[in-house]
Each structure stands twice: as C-alpha cells, then as structure tokens.
C-alpha cells in the first residue's frame, strides 16, 4: 500500500504515468470528479474508469516498491 512517507516519489510517479492512467487518476482524486463524469469526459464506461484507476494504482505501487 502507498503511504505518506512516499509523497515526493509518489508525486513524481503520478507525473510519469501514461495519460491513459494519469488523466482518470487526476480527475478522480484531484478534481473530485465522479466515475460517471470521468466516463462521460473520456467517452468510456464507468467500469472501465474503475479498471483504469485500479491499474494506475498498481503502477504507482510498483514504482514505489
């Protein structure tokens, strides 16, 4: 799991994420957009937004390992 101690590295890792993962992550956790709003913005489904966020988090964890 990601912890506060990693905040600086986490920030770098977020910036390095591919747009595919970074954009939904930022929309969800920075802009507080709902899954449905993100799905509409990205022309995709709510569940796919979930999968993208899941992957984004996995990648962040891998980067911080």
């Amino acid at each position: 799991m990601i912890s506060h101690e990693d905040s600086e590295r986490l920030n770098q890792a977020v910036e390095q994420l591919p747009d595919k993962y970074r954009v939904p992550l930022v929309l969800a956790y920075y802009n507080d957009a709902s899954y449905d709003e993100i799905a509409t913005s990205l022309s995709t489904s709510r569940n796919h937004v979930g999968v993208l966020l899941l992957r984004a988090r996995q990648k962040l964890r891998e980067e911080l390992e």
Binding site: M1, I2, S3, H4, D6, S7, L10, N11, V14, L25, V26, Y29, Y30, R57, L60
Partner: peptide
C-alpha cells in the same frame, strides 16, 4: 487510506 494519500499528494 491509499486514496487519501493520493488525494493529499495531488492537492
């Protein structure tokens, strides 16, 4: 918890 950490960093 992880969500809160990410939110804090992004904010």
């Amino acid at each position: 918890n992880e969500r809160q950490v990410i939110q804090a960093v992004l904010t």
